[in-house]
Write a protein that binds this DNA or RNA. Structure first.
Length: 412
RNA sequence: GGGGGAGUGCCCGAGUGGUUAAAGGGGGCGGACUGUAAAUCCGUUGGCGCAGCCUACGUAGGUUCGAAUCCUACCUCCCCCA
């Protein structure tokens, strides 16, 4: 029978990059029934509109959602406008600023906009959880709470850890998993996806559905994307992130800067390519037919393409080659306008100039750069810290710092 | 309410009276190499027109020829008991 084969094919795509699928057999069953009855599964992803700055890490679950969409399932993106007011304690920050409804609204819009670059939002359901959470009465909440035991909530290790370490743990934080779980009930979710840090919350949904006599959802956890440092999870505060608002060239460059090993995680989690295609590339690299550099270039192109266009992705690739392989000056160099009137005796001290154009924040740093041979003017390395130039002579010249920072001087 | 501990450079973390602008690591920056802004190696990482000077070890005072190191007060954080 071809059904088994179809199920396996779906499972292959769904499992790609996933850390855990709980329980796997149950998911197979669901998919099988879905195919047999040609009734799509309801797949849920919840996002908290708590921040405006999204990065590639946020696209991991969205990419998985896209996989489901490709397989013809019904995906639901839940904007946690209600839960955002509490703040998921999963990250133990504690210092979470209270967001105004306007902020939440703005962030929600950004989120949907970014999501639309990955999933087909016209075929997805996009809902806000205030829709069903806001009307709940205190009595409803208590009734829901009775379905959970404290011991069970304490299974969550960040809760128990915080308690053990005598760090504050708000009662309201206990209710967070409950709210997220209720989302699953309200939607009759078949599958919920989330990061590994969400495992507990996802399981809470499954448990709550069971206690209310509904069919429990399967859960899929996905790894947290490693940042450009190759070690820690991607996060803006660690400044190892690739922001979705980074211009194409920068996004491309940052992807090229990830290590060869983590490139495969990126492929599996956010390239949008099929498992087979990725496997093919991987084999070719292992066989030495494709260099890791080229494989990474392909990855960078795929990623930039998602957020911009194919054209911009290719031109970013060209530019990258130009600067780093051929060591040439980029096609577009930012311009710094120098006013000769600032220099009455027609002399600019190189150290001052470097600070002026922001290549260094202090004169000491500027000196250091020169000592280290990191500065050149029109390709000629500057060695003399005391160098003085006539501003007129700088017109049209390109000053370079390190390998990738350029600025062109123009006169006022 | 009682008892105890800690605050060091971007971050972590040594240092308990004198070559300490402060070990070591991380991160950043620069260089070499290369297949890339991978990996690896090397250098550098308070300020100042810098062979010198100034400012720095929670804050403010004090002891001393001399303090990040000792004393006093204050602030902040943490732990134990209630």
């Amino acid at each position: 029978m071809d059904i088994e084969k179809a199920v396996s094919e779906q499972m292959e795509l769904i499992s790609m990059g996933a850390v855990e699928i709980i329980p796997v057999e149950e998911l197979r069953e669901k998919i099988k029934r879905s195919i047999e009855s040609s009734r799509p599964l309801t797949v849920k992803l919840g996002v908290d509109p708590t921040r405006p700055d999204l990065h590639l890490g946020h696209s991991v679950p969205l990419t998985k959602l896209k996989h489901f969409q490709q397989l013809g399932h019904q995906v639901v993106l839940i904007i946690g406008d209600f839960t955002a007011l509490i703040g998921d304690p999963s990250e133990q920050d504690e210092t979470r600023p209270v967001l105004s409804p306007e902020d939440v609204e703005a962030n929600a819009r950004t989120y949907v906009e970014q999501a639309s670059k990955i999933i087909d939002t016209s075929r997805a359901r996009i809902v806000r959880n205030s829709e069903w959470l806001a009307p709940l009465s205190f009595r409803d909440v208590i009734q829901l709470a009775s379905k959970f035991t404290v011991a069970r909530i304490m299974e969550r290790d960040d809760f128990s850890r915080r308690l053990k370490e005598n760090r504050p743990l708000g009662l309201h934080e206990f209710l967070y998993p409950l709210m997220q779980a209720y989302d699953s009930v309200a939607l009759d979710a078949d599958v919920e996806i989330g990061g590994t840090d969400q495992k507990f919350n996802l399981l809470a949904g499954r448990n709550l559905q069971k206690s209310l006599g509904k069919s429990p959802q399967c859960i899929i956890t996905l790894p947290l994307l490693v940042g450009t440092d190759g070690v820690q999870k991607m996060s803006k505060s660690l400044s190892n992130d690739i922001s979705l608002t980074d211009p194409p060239d920068e996004m491309f460059g940052k992807v090229m800067s990830i290590s060869d090993e983590v490139m495969w995680d990126y492929y599996a989690l956010i390239s949008g390519l099929k498992p087979r295609d990725i496997e093919e590339i991987r084999m070719a690299v292992e066989a030495g037919e494709i260099s890791p550099r080229d494989a990474k270039e392909r990855l960078a192109i795929e990623i930039v393409k998602r957020y911009y266009s194919e054209k911009e992705a290719f031109s970013a690739a060209e530019e990258f080659k130009r600067i780093f392989r051929e060591r040439k000056v980029p096609t577009e160099v930012p311009v710094y306008v120098l006013d000769p009137a600032d220099f009455p005796d027609a002399k600019v001290w190189i150290v001052d100039l470097l600070v002026r154009v922001n290549f260094a924040t202090t004169k000491s740093e500027a000196r250091r750069l020169i000592h280290e041979g990191g500065i050149s003017i029109d390709g000629e390395s500057v060695r003399d810290v005391n160098l003085e130039v006539n501003p007129q002579d700088l017109k049209g010249k390109i000053i370079q710092k390190g390998k990738r920072t350029f600025i062109k001087i123009e006169l006022k």
